[in-house]
Design a protein around this nucleic acid. Structure first.
Lengths: 224, 224
DNA sequence: CGTTAGATTGATGCTCATCAATATTAGTGG
DNA sequence: CCACTAATATTGATGAGCATCAATCTAACG
């Protein structure tokens, strides 16, 4: 996935950009003239409800492409908010059209990105729809761990995970309190420890066992 | 969306195909040589867990494109099972590559389809993650009603909805029993009546009020 | 050193899952 | 055309998981 995104951006880049934590990169309903890929930093992608609730759709990691909906549909269908300082590659949204005329590899990469996004959302839906709190958290941690490790961000058995418990709760359709208590149980059981913005997996096998309610093989998955 | 799909298929079609209810059109993990668009009939799109549970990812209606994941990623990431007799347009998966070389409109249509799919999955995730049983069902009914009505399938104030309560439950992450009881409440309240494979909306305003916990305007949405 | 964002912990009760029957409908073969 | 079977829908009872409310605690920061 990352390889495709890199291929997509080459020679198409407008510039680089650096933003502070808390910055809203793209806003729901907005017709941003820019789209991005993430070089450094992490963010959350969410949808808001009028009640003030939010559903976090995805955690944004280095290598991710931002603005697919803006690129294809003109406007964003969710918002993206930085959780750390971030460095981004900036592209002009309007020029996405060109890609489909005469740049087949890039066009395909874009469609690929979209297909993978829908695949991952499907997986998330399964988790939120069918699993209990512990299973959802275990699943999310493993998914994040794998991606971050694959990006080479693992150090001393830990990966950077600079989100709030509230973010995780909103990603998994849980309350903050229940998320907190489940995290405490995991920590006590030595399964994993997420604190200070770092995630450490204490017992990979056990955590996998909890998360593995589906038919996926425990091996590395190509799309993560 | 439907318009794009039609554009995608023209002059690319291999043949038509008719299947009986219960047929599995595409199976999770399978590398199908075919992809489809739906001319008639309805189906469910789901992912299975090893526990026997299933998460229904989407209800498939006429006009839908089937096999995006197979087209872009080689293998299906979910299964599709017919719930009625269906008539389908059949295409050769292998030829999807050609689309990106020299058929920009079709390539764009494909990317559009993928983007819309990810958008709709995001909406579903919000529903399952943030709303209670009644809200989820109201939301699902309105979504289905709009699409079916837009397809011209409304008749006598009813649209065909040939799914089981179990299907709806699995789509919304609810138990069959609770779904059934919520449907009974809705029926008694005169909000809507789903029985005999037909959905009738009794009180559109009230149902919308229940479902409308988000910021969407109550008007027709372009992507449905 | 006060202020604020985030994390933690306890108490309470509602929503919803689960178990278990029974009712209904549709489909099938004699 | 009617018993027989299987699939689906319906209803009641029970309790677990989780949301919610309300404090308190910790850490970062100007």
């Amino acid at each position: 996935m990352s390889a495709d995104e890199v291929r997509f951006m080459e020679g198409f880049k407008i510039g680089e950009m650096s933003v502070d934590p808390g910055t809203t990169l793209l806003a729901e309903g907005q017709e941003s003239p820019w789209i991005y890929t993430v070089l450094e930093g992490q963010a959350v992608q969410y949808k808001s409800l009028s009640t003030g609730r939010r559903q976090i759709i995805n955690f944004v990691l280095p290598g991710d492409f931002l603005g697919l909906h803006a690129a294809m549909m003109g406007e964003m269908k969710h918002s993206i908010e930085a959780r750390t300082r971030m460095v981004l590659c900036v592209f002009e949204r309007a020029r996405v059209q060109e890609v489909f005329h005469g740049q087949p590899a890039r066009a395909q990469a874009l469609a690929w990105i979209a297909a993978v996004e829908s695949h991952l959302l499907g997986e998330t839906l399964v988790s939120v729809g069918q699993r209990n709190a512990g299973q959802r958290i275990a699943w999310a941690f493993l998914r994040l761990w794998r991606r971050l490790e694959a990006m080479g961000l693992e150090r001393d058995g830990m990966v950077p995970l600079p989100f709030r418990q509230q973010d995780l709760a909103e990603a998994l359709g849980l309350s903050l309190v229940h998320t907190n208590k489940t995290l405490a149980r995991f920590r006590q059981a030595g399964l994993c420890d997420w604190s200070g913005g770092k995630l450490r997996i204490g017992n990979l096998a056990a955590l996998t066992g909890i998360a593995l309610v589906d038919r996926d093989d425990p091996e590395q998955r190509p799309l993560m």
